[in-house]
C-alpha cells in the first residue's frame, strides 16, 4: 500500500499525485515508469514518473482520467492509498549534452516530458520547452517548466493562451526561423508524436518519443506492449519506453492501443451503472446524496 501525500487536479480530468514510494524515488531516472493497481482486483497500468522527492521519499505521477482505471484513480484524495506500485521500470532516457534540445509535451504528455527536460538541462543543454493543449486549462506544469527550461512556449489549439496552433507548428516556426536544434523529445498523443517526427525528419534532427502501449506486467514477460521500430518488434517495457521517432511505426501503435476500446466502454458503463445504483439506493435511504456524488 502506498500512501498519497498530495492529490490535486492540475487540469480538466488531470490529477497530480505525490505518493510514498521511497525505494522507487531513490532509484528512478528520467523516462522511467511505474505500474500500479488502484485496488486489489485492479488492472495494472503504466504511468511515467513525473518527479520524485528523495527527502519525502515520494514520487509524483500525473494522471489523465480516460479509461475506467484512470478515472477510478482520479477519485483518490490526499491520505488515500494506492494498492500497489512497482518500479522504476523501463530504461532511463538517454541524456547527453546535445546543444539545443527541444522538449515537447502534448496534454498530459508534458508530465512525462518534464523530468527529461530537467535532466537535459542538468546535462548542459539549452532547453526549449513547447507545451501544448486544447485550450488554456489543458496546459500543465507551465511554472515547473519555466523554472527548468531556458525558453517556454505554451501553445493552444483554440488560441486561448500562448501560441495559437499545434506544437508542431511552433516547432516548425522555430526551425524555419533558423534556430539550430540538435535534439527533440516529443511526448503526447500518438498523432502528435507522429506529426513531430514528420516535421523533424527532413531536417535530420535526432528525435525521440516515449511510447505508451498497453502493458500487463511491465517486465518483459507478456509481450503485450510490443511496438514496431525499424520494422522490428520491440518490447516497450524493457527495450524502451523511448525510441527513435523516425523509426517508430505509429500506425501500428495507434491500432494496438485500440484493442480494448469496446471493453473499455463496457467498464465505464459498468461503473456508471454501479454509481447509478448507489445513487438510487442513497436517495431511497435518505443518505445525503452529496456524499455519494463525491464517490
Amino acid at each position: 500500500m502506498n500512501k498519497i501525500l498530495e492529490a490535486r487536479f492540475i487540469g480538466p480530468d488531470v490529477k497530480l499525485f505525490k505518493v510514498e514510494a521511497s525505494k522507487i524515488a531513490e532509484k528512478k531516472k528520467a523516462g522511467q515508469f511505474v505500474i500500479l493497481r488502484v485496488d486489489e482486483n485492479g488492472e495494472r497500468i503504466p504511468l511515467t514518473i513525473a518527479d520524485s522527492d528523495l527527502n519525502e521519499g515520494t514520487i509524483t505521477i500525473i494522471v489523465q482520467g480516460i479509461g475506467a482505471t484512470t478515472k477510478q484513480l482520479n477519485t483518490l484524495e490526499t491520505g488515500d492509498y494506492i494498492h500497489d506500485l512497482v518500479g522504476p521500470l523501463g530504461k532511463a532516457s538517454h541524456i547527453e549534452n546535445f546543444g539545443t534540445a527541444v522538449s515537447i509535451g502534448g496534454g498530459v504528455g508534458t508530465a512525462i516530458a518534464y523530468p527529461t527536460a530537467k535532466a537535459l538541462k542538468e546535462a548542459g543543454n539549452h532547453v526549449i520547452s513547447i507545451i501544448g493543449g486544447k485550450s488554456k486549462d489543458y496546459i500543465i506544469l507551465e511554472d515547473e517548466m519555466r523554472q527548468t527550461a531556458d525558453e517556454v512556449y505554451p501553445t493552444t489549439d483554440d488560441g486561448s493562451y500562448g501560441f495559437h496552433g499545434f506544437v508542431t507548428q511552433k516547432l516548425e516556426e522555430l526551425i524555419k526561423s533558423g534556430r539550430k536544434i540538435d535534439f527533440v523529445l516529443a511526448i503526447g498523443p500518438i498523432p502528435m508524436m507522429a506529426a513531430v517526427a514528420k516535421v523533424t525528419q527532413p531536417y535530420g534532427i535526432k528525435t525521440m518519443v516515449s511510447l505508451n502501449p498497453i502493458m500487463v506486467d511491465g517486465t518483459g514477460m507478456c509481450g503485450g506492449c510490443r511496438a514496431y521500430v525499424d520494422n522490428k518488434p520491440v518490447f516497450v517495457c524493457v527495450d524502451g519506453p523511448e525510441f527513435d521517432a523516425h523509426k517508430v511505426d505509429f500506425k501500428i501503435l495507434l491500432q494496438r492501443n485500440k484493442m480494448y476500446l469496446p471493453q473499455e466502454k463496457d467498464t465505464l458503463e459498468h461503473h456508471v451503472c454501479n454509481y447509478d445504483k448507489m445513487f438510487d439506493a442513497a436517495k431511497r435511504s435518505s443518505i445525503n446524496t452529496k456524499e455519494v456524488e463525491n464517490v
Binding site: N41, G42, E43, R44, A68, T69, V216, M259, Y260, Q263, E264, D266, T267, H270, H271
Partner: peptide, 14 residues
C-alpha cells in the same frame, strides 16, 4: 488478472 471476471476485474480480454 482474472479477466474472465470482467468487468468486476477490469483487465480486459478480447
Amino acid at each position: 488478472m482474472k479477466s474472465y471476471n470482467f468487468p468486476n476485474n477490469p483487465t480486459p480480454m478480447l
